[in-house]
Design a protein around this nucleic acid. Structure first.
Length: 1014
RNA sequence: GCAGAAAUGGUGGAAUGGUAGACACGAGGGACUUAAAAUCCCUUGCCCGAUGAGGGCGUGUGGGUUCGAGUCCCACUUUCUGUACCA
């Protein structure tokens, strides 16, 4: 059937007349009953615009809403030969499709799944691009609107790159080992795996709804044996490697063993725990156990006695980055220092390379700076101070070698092994008492309580430059873990030493000319040296900088010490006394650690009867039955920390199903490393250090091709919650707005965010929500109760969590995606405010309407073309710069322009569809198909702009006088500077501003501005 | 303390040294509607002026460079983030 009747009818009296043509082409194909009018003969001619209508009703079918009109056609008889049974009154079902996000999003998500649209494989013919998000820990609370921010940003980039022709790897997975699941297990007895799997299912569902282009076939979970097989494997490689300082890379431990057997420690420069010296003969004479003990000092994954952060509440040790201000990052429990034998990773060996290679990556300056601080390179000197009357030498590290002449005492860390050696019998009681006191302080107490404390050991050291005797003290302001655990104290030029000296009445000798040290120390590294002359060295009169260099040179020549670079970065503690983590592929034979055979990987996490430590204080794995090798040797009962599984996951995504290797050579050579990594800045000192270390280690072994894992990194800001408050006058049931009125004595009460809209409280729902205030009175302003608010972290306990599911349900994923981008720059933290979401939702609805109106296949007009090409240029540049908020506004501007132009161009919509595809993939896919395309818009080509379309015929110049804009002149775009100047000055407005003066100077910036100086 | 980032309307924010406040929210007014919702139109930095024409002032504070500064330089204030007895 072919119907060719053009009908015009008003949708409402005021709305512009809208015409539809009833024919096979305008009705989307396949719609049932698109036009249920009686069969019409071919008709020609048009009805008059004044055709009246009567009666209408809506009904919905297949997601389309139909309006039912009866139209009285006023068609000229001769133009339309109607037969007797055909009424001049035509019944039309006008398909009136609202923007139905639920329908559209469901349909296209299904289409993407069914057609494996986001599945990628290595394709040598195309250039690769790897876009990665930091994978989430699947917590029980699910996602809130803050989580997807980074995922949306990276998804836009991934889709953009794909449309530009790149083969884009964009995977997602789960960092599934972690404390919350285990804590939950302890409370409920439920296996953490169950909790984790449930949470992952929830996350997956939430993520799917937002329309990400993840290749889910590559999903990884760190708790999956097929995955942690390779975590354990990597650990084994580290156990079997040492760090050679001469070639500056990791080498197989077998090479070290061979060198020991041939030459002993002679000529070996390797990173180690404590310096060792032995001959080949001594080595060869050692028992296997002794040899293995020696090797443990060199392995990259090693077991060592170290001061660790022990968290009694969690029953485990923690890495430095898992502790903040003396409290555990997870849970906020107090942390103590404790000497324990633990597995460690020799990350410190990589400190120089971790620092140096920061220059090769495209990360933000602030993030690089954070890493630099954490690595903490400091150049100075290690100096020897002999102990008076004893055959002992104290090594100290200092960056201020120039201040040796001002050393008036020395300080040992309480944990230093020298404390026992230097304490004299007379002082023993006092020192022991002090050590006892310090031991019972937690790290937190030590930090909060900055009171000066310490005790004299009774011994004296000898200043190597002056020969003077100086007392040696013990104090907890000196850290055992940094430098040598001993310092030379220069109270005149170090504030901590100064405080200590004043407290214990020790002398203060100023060394810099003009420095007033009567009230405080002079810490600046500037000025001329005084009081600095000894038998072998005279620094007087030198600038501090030169004095430092001079002293370093002198002590090296005189054998008093050496130039040394210290790093703050310490080895990573790799054991956790917990259940929910990767087991170590390690067993113990006569107390010595051995690796399992690789063929036994993965070593599966065994079931246990309880997730608590044993009575004997051993970790939960000690409860596992048969936790031994076949031969009956006990297996390690600690598990690996959270960062173990997250350190190389980006490699596993390249080849996730490989059961022979972590990643195949081929896949690694193709995908290489991550081109764009998006995640939170909170991982700056943990994950990003460990991951870089891990990668460099694998790189040294020739297992991966890139020295840095993450080429470009973007930190998305945090989305904060907006907490709402109501204010109750004390001891009454009356609430007042905002709490701004100081005459009321008010107490803020938190209100769930769902009860508040535009700061206005739904008082009725509030009464239901908090039944104890069921009969509350509200003092209204203009009939409304206005809540107060505060911007805080988004958290359940603050009643400010906004769930993305609710937003998706109500507005759609495309709206959520656009809105999160529209909120502001991705890197910036900002509070979530659902109120603004209507703006982008309206934009999509308007765009939808514009699409429906677009029925012209003609070339774009000049105006249309200019609008559209301006948009191509803007959006392309914005995506490259991660400036997504301005992209969204550019879309809005273009749409407004097209509406203004009364555009009906399908070509314009076609370009906009492509540009919008990365941002709002569902609606774009819908448009794409309705425009008649077969495949997915995901593979549409990214449009290029035509510079000539952007050229203006005329340019409007603002004319300013002495920098103040006064009026505009319009001149031809081709006008010369002189012409522009002439136009500006001959404008009728000119006289008013020039007055009787002549312009001194006229500045014309082509295309920009005219400034007249008078 | 140190390091980094930032400070622009009622709000989120925009602005290669060149018309400050794009875009959006909110607010006010109007149209449509029996009504509401939705939608559409207008106004919206502050002050003076009459509601007009017009003018003045405005990007945390104070100075500077420049024909011209939100943007560059110096000093300061405040906020956020990270980090800390690191010798």
């Amino acid at each position: 059937m072919r119907v060719n009747a053009e009908c015009r009818f008003p949708l409402s009296q005021n709305a512009p007349h809208r015409s539809i043509s009833i024919s096979g082409t305008t009705f989307p194909a396949g719609l049932p009953g698109a036009a249920t009018c009686d069969p019409l003969p071919d008709t020609a001619g048009s009805p008059s615009p004044a055709d009246d209508y009567r009666g209408f009703g809506d009904f919905v079918a297949n997601g389309w809403r139909f309006k039912h009109f009866f139209v009285n056609l006023h068609i000229q008889e001769q133009a339309c030969a109607l037969s007797a049974r055909q009424s001049p009154q035509l019944s039309i079902l006008f398909p009136f499709m609202d923007y139905n996000h639920q329908e559209i999003e469901r349909r296209w998500q299904q289409y993407w799944r069914d057609n494996d649209i986001y599945k990628v494989s290595e394709d040598e013919s195309r250039r690769k691009f790897y876009v990665l998000d930091m994978f989430p820990y699947p917590s029980g609370a699910g996602l809130h609107v803050g989580h997807p921010l980074g995922y949306i940003a990276s998804d836009i980039y991934a889709r953009f790159k794909r449309m530009q022709g790149f083969n884009v790897l964009h995977p997602m997975g789960y960092d599934a080992y972690g404390l919350p699941a285990e804590q939950y297990a302890i409370q409920t007895g439920q296996h953490p795996e169950k909790t984790t799997v449930d949470n992952i299912a929830r996350y997956r569902e939430q993520l799917e709804k937002i329309g990400f282009s993840f290749d889910w076939s590559r999903e990884v979970r760190t708790c999956d044996p097929a995955y942690y097989h390779w975590t354990q494997w990597a650990f084994m490689q580290m156990f079997n490697s040492y760090y050679d300082l001469d070639v500056d890379k990791a080498l197989p431990i077998s090479e070290l063993t061979a060198r020991f057997a041939a030459n002993g420690t002679e000529g070996v420069h390797a990173a180690c725990g404590k310096p060792m010296s032995f001959t080949a003969a001594e080595w060869n004479a050692m028992s296997e156990k002794e040899q293995r003990d020696v090797l443990m000092n060199y392995r990259i994954a090693y077991q060592g006695e170290t001061m660790v952060n022990w968290c009694p509440a969690l029953g485990t040790v923690l890495a430095n980055d898992e502790v903040s201000e003396g409290l555990s990052v997870r849970g906020g429990h107090p942390v103590e220092q404790k000497l324990m034998n633990q597995w460690c990773l020799r990350v410190s060996a990589y400190a120089p390379r971790l620092l140096r290679d920061l220059e090769t990556v495209d990360w933000s300056d602030s993030l690089k700076e954070t890493q630099r601080n954490w690595i903490g390179k400091s150049e100075g000197a290690e100096m020897k101070f002999a102990v008076d009357g004893k055959d002992l030498v104290l090594d100290i590290f200092t960056t201020r070698a120039d201040t040796v002449f001002g050393v008036t005492f020395m300080v040992l860390a309480p944990e230093s092994k020298y404390v026992a050696l230097l304490t004299t019998p007379e002082q023993k009681a006092a020192v022991d008492a002090y050590l006892e006191e310090v031991k019972h302080k937690t790290e937190r107490e030590r930090q909060i309580d900055k009171k000066v404390s310490g005790v004299f050991t009774g011994s004296y050291a000898v200043n190597p430059l002056t020969g003077e005797k100086i007392p040696v003290w013990v104090s907890d302001y000196v850290l055992a873990g940094y430098g040598t655990g001993a310092i030379m104290a220069v109270p005149a030029h170090d504030s901590r030493d100064y405080a200590f000296a004043r407290h214990f009445n020790l002398p203060v000798i100023p060394l810099i000319e003009g420095a007033d040290v009567s009230e405080q120390s002079f810490d600046a590294k500037e000025g001329k040296m005084i009081n600095s002359k000894g038998p072998g060295l005279d620094l007087n009169g030198l600038e501090v900088k030169d004095a430092i260099a001079r002293t370093k040179k002198y002590i090296e020549e005189a054998g008093l010490g050496r130039v040394k670079t210290n790093y703050r970065l310490r080895d990573a503690i790799f054991s956790r006394q917990r259940y929910w983590g990767e087991p170590f592929p390690v067993y113990y034979k006569e107390g010595t650690a051995y690796l399992l055979d690789e063929s036994e990987l993965p070593l599966r996490l065994p079931p246990v009867s309880s997730y608590l430590p044993t009575e004997a204080g051993e970790p939960p794995l000690a409860r596992a039955e048969g936790w031994t090798t076949k031969e009956g040797y006990p297996i390690e009962v600690c598990t690996m920390p959270g960062f173990a599984g997250s350190s190389a996951y980006y490699l596993r995504y390249m080849d996730p199903h490989n059961d022979k290797e972590l990643v195949s050579r081929k896949a690694d050579k193709y995908w290489r490393n991550v081109d764009l990594y998006v995640g939170g800045a909170e991982h700056a000192t943990g994950h990003l250090i460990y991951s870089r270390f891990w990668n460099k280690f694998l790189y040294d072994l020739g297992l991966v091709v890139e020295a840095e894992p993450f080429r470009k990194l973007v930190n998305q800001g945090m989305i904060q919650g907006r907490s709402n408050f109501v204010y109750r006058i004390k001891n009454t049931n009356t609430f007042v707005s905002r709490g701004l009125r100081k005459d009321y004595d008010t107490t803020p009460i938190r209100v769930d965010i769902s009860l508040v809209s535009n700061d206005v409280l739904d008082t009725e729902r509030f009464r239901n929500w908090r039944p104890e205030f069921a009969d509350a009175e509200f003092v209204l302003e203009d009939g409304k109760y206005i809540c107060g608010y505060a911007v805080e972290k988004m958290s359940k306990s603050m009643f400010n969590v906004v769930n993305p599911d609710d937003i998706v349900e109500r507005y759609g994923a495309d709206t959520l995606r656009l809105y999160e981008m529209f909120l502001g720059p991705v890197e910036q933290s900002k509070p979530w405010d659902t109120n603004g979401i209507d703006g982008v939702n309206r934009f999509l609805k308007k765009l939808w309407g514009q699409f429906e109106k677009s029925d012209s296949d003609a070339e774009m007009t000049k105006e249309e073309k200019k609008s559209v090409h301006k948009l191509i240029k803007k959006v392309t540049a914005d995506i490259e710069n991660f400036s997504y908020n301005t992209s969204v506004s550019a879309f809005m501007i273009t749409l407004n322009e097209l509406i203004q132009q009364k555009s009906r161009s399908r070509r314009a919509m076609e370009v906009i569809t492509r540009l919008l595809a990365p941002f709002a993939p569902h609606i774009a896919e819908e448009f794409w198909h309705r425009l008649g395309h077969e495949g997915s818009v995901v593979d549409a080509e990214w449009p290029e702009y035509d510079e000539s379309a952007l050229v203006e015929d005329t340019v409007k110049y603002p004319v300013s006088f002495n920098g103040k804009t006064r009026y505009m002149v319009e001149v031809a775009a081709a006008a010369s500077k002189e012409d522009v100047e002439k136009a500006a000055l001959s404008d009728p407005n000119a006289a008013k501003w020039l007055g009787d003066k002549a312009p001194r100077k006229v500045i014309v910036v082509p295309g920009r501005i005219v400034n007249v100086v008078i």
